[in-house]
Design a binder for these strands. Structure first.
Lengths: 197, 197
DNA sequence: CGGTTCCTTGAGGATGATCAACGAGGGTGG
DNA sequence: CCACCCTCGTTGATCATCCTCAAGGAACCG
């Protein structure tokens, strides 16, 4: 848990339910709230002019998201949508700053969270530029395993081909064809349509 | 100025000179120091297996860089090199934390700096995915103008074609050809090899 | 001048995107 | 239980585009 829910509630935080598929905020909107996930998952993404989607990051229970624009005078750079039914505590920007004034330890925690986020984005950027589809997909798979903290053993990847495409900036067909190639190289396994890595 | 130099010096900070082209740290190294630029410019970049370079960011006088790994247990995700002769104050990680304990206002400042950095990286990521070379180059140019705080009037872009390529993940020849196309569309001007936008 | 860095051009090829169609599986309702 | 729908996976053909390689030219600087 990032900021204790009790603290958030005490400072006027409101828990709100979001159905799967519901939007929490949109790219370009002014940022007014701090969001922390009580349960569920959130995806942040961008859509370009011809409808191609790029997934920036995913967040789960206990994580906060969409904070950077609260600290600088900018609008949201991406859109946030619930990928499962979720409950989110929202605290106004002003109240968040009061909380930070009160609890310096939380500031340090925020620095850590933001630092991690920058680190991940740096890695992603350098991988995406590395144009080979295979490299991109492997980077995605490794990042997933690291997040799950299961680097050693093989596991089923709970993402559709389309989702992998959105993360890697490729197209579905390219992901499918690349995965098949990778299977023949024994880099991944495909067990009745499920991807294992 | 980010953290006052006097404070850094008081806590054992050492100023070090770097010649243009000298490396400050390399990708994969353990992070032990906080770096702040007294004068000069620094570039952070990645090189992929076939030698293609990707520029993550540039930093100038008064800015700090390479902080995220200090706060999480990771090595540097990119390499830092001086792009001009530079002077950099280095403070050990341990001393930096002592400074933060002493001056809470600096913590808030760090949050702001990191938030800005995440914001920029999000924008970059969504632009790079947007595969059209023209879009990527325009995004780069607009980002530059914004950083210079000169959004309105035209100005000469102080980057070589190769540097633009490194920022956008394109190849030099593609940048050159795209710029020429953009010139015929009146999107940019090329005045005896110098790019004006 | 000679070297170095940067810009430019051309030809050719590889590869990922696009478009269109179909198949497999799972869930739902009658 | 069957019919239908919807999502997801798959395939093939074709195309556009960016990369690659190679070469040469312009500008600048000591």
């Amino acid at each position: 848990m990032f900021i204790d829910s009790d603290i958030l509630i005490t400072w006027g935080g409101i828990a709100k339910k979001y159905k799967k598929g519901e939007f929490i905020f949109h790219e370009g909107e002014h940022a007014r709230f701090f969001h922390q996930i009580i349960s569920g998952t959130i995806k942040m993404f961008n859509t370009n002019y011809d409808g191609k989607e790029f997934t920036q990051a995913e967040f789960g229970t206990g994580e906060s998201f969409g904070e950077p624009p609260l600290f600088i005078d900018e609008t949201y750079p991406s859109t946030a949508v619930a990928t499962h039914d979720s409950v989110i505590i929202k605290v106004s920007k002003e109240k968040l700053f009061e909380i930070l004034d009160e609890y310096p330890a939380i500031e340090r925690k925020i620095i850590t969270v933001l630092a991690r986020r920058i680190y991940n984005k740096s890695i992603t950027a350098s991988e995406v530029i590395n144009n080979s589809p295979e490299t991109r997909i492997l980077a995605f798979l490794n990042a997933y395993k690291k997040k799950i903290e299961c680097v050693d053993k093989q596991l089923e990847i709970p993402y559709t081909r389309q989702e992998i495409a959105n993360y890697t900036g490729l197209r579905v067909e390219t992901v499918i064809r690349t995965l098949i190639k990778m299977q023949t190289k024994n880099l991944v396994k495909i067990v009745n349509r499920k991807l294992v890595y």
